[in-house]
Simulated scan of single mutants.
Amino acid sequence: MIGSLAVILGCQLLGEVVARGLGLPVPGPVLGMAAMVGVLWLRDRFAPPLLAGVEPAGRFLLAHLSLLFVPAGVGVVGNLEVLAAEWLALAVALGVSTVLTLVVSVVTFRAVARRMGQA
């Protein structure tokens, strides 16, 4: 469990270092997630024991995912004056991003389903 958690946190650290070091406009955790995809892809090719055990920490984090929303909720409550001042812009951004996410998900699903049907 400690080794798999170290791999996950190491990927996030790598993403933060790359994002801040190169001044990229991409959040570090997003780059860390991309690094994790690369690590998992390499795991299938080289299968070192440390990388093979990422699943226990991942399952634990997913089982307790709701706890990760507590800091975000505290941040919202701490900034209620911003929420009150910018509620319309936030509502529009939330609505547009939700619709865009649904459209991209459907397009991706259909593309993958089409490819899987041809394989």
Rank of each mutant, 00 (worst) to 15 (best):
F60P: 00
V17H: 06
M116R: 15
V37C: 02
L40I: 03
M36W: 12
S97L: 12
L65A: 11
L61Y: 02
E81A: 11
G78S: 10
V7N: 04
A57L: 10
G73S: 01
F109T: 01
G38P: 00
L100D: 01
L50T: 06
L90P: 05
V70C: 01
V106G: 08
L102H: 13
L42C: 14
E81N: 07
G58F: 10
P48G: 10
G75R: 14
S105G: 11
L83I: 15
A111S: 07
A35H: 06
P56A: 04
A89Q: 08
L50V: 13
M36K: 12
V70F: 12
L102P: 00
G75A: 14
G73N: 04
A34H: 02
C11H: 02
R114H: 13
R20M: 02
T101E: 10
G10D: 02
I8Q: 04
R115N: 09
L40S: 08
L94F: 15
V37L: 06
R43M: 01
W41C: 01
A34T: 11
A91G: 09
L61K: 02
G53T: 05
V106K: 10
G28N: 09
G23C: 09
A52I: 09
L88V: 11
V74P: 00
F109A: 04
E16M: 04
A72H: 02
L22F: 15
V70K: 03
G28P: 13
S66V: 13
G32P: 08
V54D: 12
L83V: 14
L22G: 03
R115D: 10
G95E: 04
L22A: 15
N79V: 06
G117Y: 09
L65E: 06
F46D: 09
L68Y: 13
V96T: 14
V103R: 12
V54W: 13
L31T: 00
V74I: 14
M116V: 11
M36C: 13
S4P: 11
R115K: 15
P48C: 11
P56H: 05
G53E: 14
V74A: 06
V82S: 14
R43N: 10
L83H: 06
A47V: 07
P49V: 04
W41Q: 00
A57M: 12
G53H: 09
V99C: 03
V112T: 05
L14M: 04
A52C: 04
S97W: 12
L65D: 03
P27S: 07
L5M: 09
G58W: 13
G23A: 12
R59K: 12
G15H: 11
L68K: 01
A35K: 03
H64E: 11
G78A: 06
